Amino acid sequence: MEKPTSSMEDDSNIDLEDRDPNRLNRHIQVFWEEVIGEPEGVRSPECAWRLSRHCFRLSKGCCYVLLTVLIAPLLALCLGLTFACLAFEHVWCIVPCLRVWRITCSSFRNFWTVLVQSVVLPFTEALGYFFHNVRVFSQKPPDAQERKDDIHIV
């Protein structure tokens, strides 16, 4: 049997431009214009605005690069181990146990279905025929003003 190839795991076809093709991090807004905005009425001097924007971009870029170079490989190793353990757990433990449970419970389900259809269903249908002409009316007596509604069954 031929091994299926996954374009997601193949390093030779990695897209270095679009690094979030599934849009996992759309909620993260990190551009200056998405984080800082001065409304009308409060304005900093233009030189302070430009310097602040430049400091923001430079510090964000340098800090991100430093963190990704130092911490990202270790974190990627931990995440790889975590997802490998998770995949192992699902493939070798959870799915087979669920399959055993489903096979074991199928005979009980068949027994329960037969019991319900042969005993409970006729009984509830008979009760339905017995009570199908019952009508319930709710009205307030003319002399009582603060009493709850009386229920009359006819």
Rank of each mutant, 00 (worst) to 15 (best):
V30R: 12
W49Q: 14
P73E: 02
F31G: 06
A72R: 04
D15F: 01
L74V: 02
L75V: 11
E38S: 04
T5D: 04
I94M: 04
T82G: 11
V134L: 15
V35L: 09
K60L: 15
P141A: 07
R147C: 09
S12P: 02
P96G: 00
R99G: 00
V154G: 09
V30M: 15
V114D: 06
A84H: 11
D10C: 00
V95Y: 03
A126N: 10
S7T: 02
Q117K: 08
S138L: 14
P45E: 12
P141R: 13
E46Y: 10
L51F: 13
Q139G: 07
S7Y: 01
V120E: 07
A84V: 08
V154R: 06
S7G: 01
A72M: 07
Y64T: 08
L58G: 03
L66S: 13
I36E: 09
R99W: 01
S44Y: 09
C97Q: 09
I28N: 05
V134G: 02
L66E: 13
R57Q: 12
L77I: 08
T124K: 11
I28E: 07
S118N: 05
V30G: 14
C85V: 04
C47M: 05
Y129C: 14
P142I: 01
N22L: 15
L121Y: 09
L16D: 02
P45W: 09
E17F: 05
N25W: 15
D143H: 15
P45M: 08
T68G: 01
L121T: 11
P21N: 01
R19G: 06
A87Q: 12
L81H: 05
E46H: 11
N13E: 12
V65A: 13
F123P: 01
N25E: 05
S12C: 04
P39R: 12
V69W: 13
W32D: 03
V136F: 06
R53E: 10
F130G: 08
R23G: 07
N110Y: 05
D143M: 13
H54C: 09
N22D: 11
D15T: 01
L16A: 00
H132K: 15
